[in-house]
Amino acid sequence: MPVKLRDFPRTHFNMPGNAACPGCPETMGLRYVKMALGDKAVLVIPAGCSSVIQGISPKSGINFPILNIVFAAAASAAAGMKAGFEMLGRDDVQVVVWAGDGGTADIGLQAMSGAAERGDDIIYICVDNEAYMNTGIQRSGATPYGAWTTTTWTGKKEHKKNVPFIMIAHDVPYVATASVGYPQDFIEKLRKAATVKGFKYIHLHAPCPVGWRFDPGLTPEIAQLAVKTGMWPLFEYHNGKLKISSFSRLYRVKEKRVPLKEYLKLQGRFRHLKDSDVKILEEYIDRLWAWLDLLEKAPNPSGTARDLLGK
C-alpha cells in the first residue's frame, strides 16, 4: 500500500528541541517509526546516540514510551517486555528495539541472535550510521572499507559486516533493509513488519553528518546516493522469499548504477581514498549484488535446502 503524505495527521511525530545534532538521521528515522506504528509502539533503546537525544529529565525528546537498557541486552529486554505484555493480554502493543550499529553488529549481536532463534515477537531496527558516533566516531563492525574513524585514522582495512544476511541465515520471518533517504519505503516496510508474527529485523541506513564529515543538509541526498551507487541495496526477505525493493531494482544492472565516486566525494571520511581503494569498494558492491542475485533466484532458500536434503 503506497504511503500518502497528505493523509498523515498534523501532530508532532518527534519532539522538537531534542539533543540531536542538526541533520540527524536518527530523529528522521524515529519520526518514520511513529508515522508507521503510531501510539501502539514501545521502544527499547540500548546505549547510543538515541539515549542522548532524549535530552534532560523530566522531558523526553523522543515521542515514545522508552526503556533505556544496557548495550548488550536490548533484544533480551524487548523479549521479556513482549512476554510481559502478552501476560497482561496486551497483544496490540508493538515492542520495537531501536539500536545503533554498535548495539547490533558488535555488542548486542548475541542477544539479538538469541531472540531471533527463540522467535520472539518483536521488531528489531538497527539504525546504522556505520561507527560508534555517540562516543566519538570509533570504528564498528558495520564501518565500510576505507572509512576514516578516530580509531582507523588511515582508513578501515576490513569490509562492512553484513548483518541482514546474518539475520536471513537465522531463518526469521521478516528481514528488510531501508534507508532514511526513502522514508515511504521504510514506512511501508515497518507497516508490513507489524503484521508479521515472529522476529522482524529492519536495517536502516542512516548517514551521520558529524561522523561522516558532510554538510548536515545533505543527509537525505547521501542516503539516496548510497542506494543509487549500489552500496546499500534495499531488499525485503519475507517467508523465505527475497525481493529487491522498487527503489533499488534499477541498480541491479551494473551499468545503471551511479559512479561510486559521486557518493564518496561528498564525505570527508573517504577523502584520503586512492583509486585502488575505490576499486576494492566497487568489487565489494559487485560481490554484494552477486549474493543478492543468488538469494533472489532461489525460490525459497530454506525450502530449497530442505528439498535438496529430501533427494
Partner: peptide
C-alpha cells in the same frame, strides 16, 4: 526516574 515526551527537552534549540 521517568521522563515524559515534551518539546524542548534541551531548551530552545533555535539558538543553535
Amino acid at each position: 526516574p521517568v521522563s515524559k515526551p515534551a518539546p524542548g527537552s534541551v531548551g530552545k534549540t533555535g539558538t543553535w
